[in-house]
C-alpha cells in the first residue's frame, strides 16, 4: 500500500511541470491535429489565403519568442561523463553530418563536406587536439559552462540529443585525426 501511494505521489509530482508546459502560447504556428504540430505558411500563387505545410519536427517543445511564453531557457548544466565513452563513431558521424539531427556541419568543417560552415572552428582533426572524452562530452552537452557567450546549441541541456547520441558524436570527433 505504501509503495502504491509513493508511486501515485511521484506520478503526480512528475505530472506537475508537464501540465504547466501544456499551456502553449496562443500565437504559435501550431496545429495539434497535424503530425509534427509545428506548421509553416506557403503563399500559394493567386490566392488570398495561406496554405500550410508541416515542419519536420515539433518546435513548440522549446521556448519561443511569444510574449505569452513563460517557459525558461534551460540553464547551463555541468555534466560528468560516467564510465568509459562507449560511443559509436559511425553513428556519431551520421548525427553530425545530418541537417535534421546534430547539423554540426552547418558551423564546422568536417572531413568529406566541401561546404562546411565557418560559424565555429574547423574540426577536421579535432581528435588530435588532445581533448579528453569528458571535455568534448561537456562541450557538446552544454558549452555555455565554459563560455556563457557561446552560440553553440546546448545539445544535452535542450534534450536535442540523448546521452548515448552525444557519446557517439564524441567518439566520431575523437576519430578525426
Amino acid at each position: 500500500m505504501r509503495k502504491q501511494l509513493l508511486g501515485l505521489c511521484l506520478a503526480l509530482v512528475g505530472a506537475t511541470p508537464a501540465m504547466a508546459n501544456d499551456a502553449l502560447p496562443s500565437n504559435l504556428l501550431y496545429d495539434a491535429s497535424r503530425p509534427n504540430k509545428t506548421i509553416w505558411p506557403l503563399p500559394a500563387k493567386n490566392m488570398g489565403e495561406l496554405k500550410w505545410n508541416d515542419h519536420r519536427q515539433d518546435l513548440s517543445r522549446w521556448p519561443t519568442l511569444s510574449y505569452e511564453d513563460k517557459r525558461p531557457t534551460a540553464k547551463p548544466r555541468k555534466v560528468e561523463l560516467q564510465g568509459p565513452l562507449n560511443g559509436d563513431a559511425e553513428n556519431g558521424k551520421k548525427i553530425a553530418m545530418n541537417t535534421q539531427r546534430g547539423n554540426c556541419w552547418a558551423c564546422h568543417v568536417l572531413p568529406g563536406d566541401p561546404q562546411g560552415g565557418t560559424g565555429g572552428p574547423p574540426l577536421m582533426n579535432v581528435g588530435s587536439w588532445g581533448y579528453t572524452d569528458a571535455h568534448l562530452y561537456q562541450q557538446v552537452f552544454d558549452r555555455r559552462v565554459a563560455n556563457p557567450d557561446t552560440f553553440m546549441p546546448p545539445y544535452g541541456s535542450n534534450g536535442v540529443l540523448t546521452e548515448q547520441e552525444i557519446r557517439d558524436v564524441v567518439a566520431y570527433l575523437q576519430s578525426l585525426k
Partner: peptide
C-alpha cells in the same frame, strides 16, 4: 524554422 525556433502567427 531554419534556426530551430517555433514560428509565430
Amino acid at each position: 524554422r531554419n534556426a530551430g525556433v517555433q514560428p509565430l502567427k
